[in-house]
């Protein structure tokens, strides 16, 4: 938590800065695409949201694994705090993708491997959130949700490689470590928005982890209060 408190102002500041620089470039100064025209601007939101959805899933799954194996309470809290943010980014990825697909592909939605596996990830996020609240004993809920997060992790590489393994309507990746099919003027807003989304996640994560920690403390305090009252009644 000390580390989290130390990076918090930096992450928040960087997020504001990256949005302030990235949004005008993404919306105004970057050029329209030779084929997609102005709709390429939707990609500056869609791609970072997709990347965040997957990254946060990996973070959530690792946190869940550490929680299940080593009973690391902090890792469990990070996973729990991440889930709604990851679900939101996945939803944004889907919505922005649909808004691009309608004019460009000619359809809002198709059931190809990429779109379907992304939708499954969104549902796993929702399932994780629902499962965590479904039990009387919060610890049991956390454990069940953590198991679901681990089961669902197989889906994330499927999302990534679906466009290579099967024929899909969705195009393959334009970017990898070794190649780029994107001109520099378009890479700049894309990377700025990715950075902004990443820093935004870190910022919100710290806030949410603090909140989850407090919730646990409140629970404990209530428990000991009840226990104390019962003890007092027994004596009285």
């Amino acid at each position: 938590m000390k580390i989290a408190n130390a990076i918090f102002p930096w992450a928040a500041g960087l997020a504001v800065l990256l949005f302030a620089v990235g949004l005008p470039i993404a919306l105004v100064t970057s050029p329209p695409d030779y084929q997609q025209g102005e709709t390429v601007r939707i990609l500056y939101l869609h791609v970072p949201a997709a990347v965040m959805g997957e990254m946060i899933y990996y973070a959530m799954a690792s946190g869940s694994a550490a929680y299940l194996i080593w009973r690391h309470p902090m890792a469990g809290l990070v996973a729990k705090a991440s889930a709604p943010v990851g679900a939101m980014f996945t939803a944004l990825c889907l919505i922005c993708g649909m808004l691009w697909g309608e004019p460009m592909w000619g359809t809002f939605w198709v059931w190809d491997a990429r779109l379907t596996s992304t939708l499954i990830m969104f549902f796993i996020y929702l399932g994780y959130i629902a499962l965590g609240d479904a039990f009387e004993d919060p610890e049991r809920g956390d454990r069940a949700a953590a198991i679901l997060a681990l089961v669902g992790v197989v889906n994330v590489p499927i999302i990534k490689f679906s466009v290579n393994w099967w024929n899909t309507l969705h195009q393959p990746a334009s970017l990898s470590l070794t190649k780029s099919n994107m001109s520099g003027e378009m890479l700049l807003p894309l990377f700025l928005m990715m950075g902004a989304y990443g820093m935004f996640y870190v910022t919100v994560l710290v806030i949410r982890v603090r909140s989850e920690l407090l919730a646990a403390k409140i629970r404990n305090a209530r428990m000991s209060q009840i226990a104390g009252n019962e003890a007092a009644q027994a004596i009285g």
């Binding site: 050029p31 329209p32 030779y34 084929q35 592909w105 000619g106 099919n181 378009m186």
Partner: peptide
């Protein structure tokens, strides 16, 4: 009865393409 276009994963400004 339905036609969908595939995007070819290339992104560049019109001037560059020209």
């Amino acid at each position: 009865n339905e036609i969908m276009a595939k995007h070819d994963e290339k992104y560049m400004p019109r001037e560059v393409a020209d």
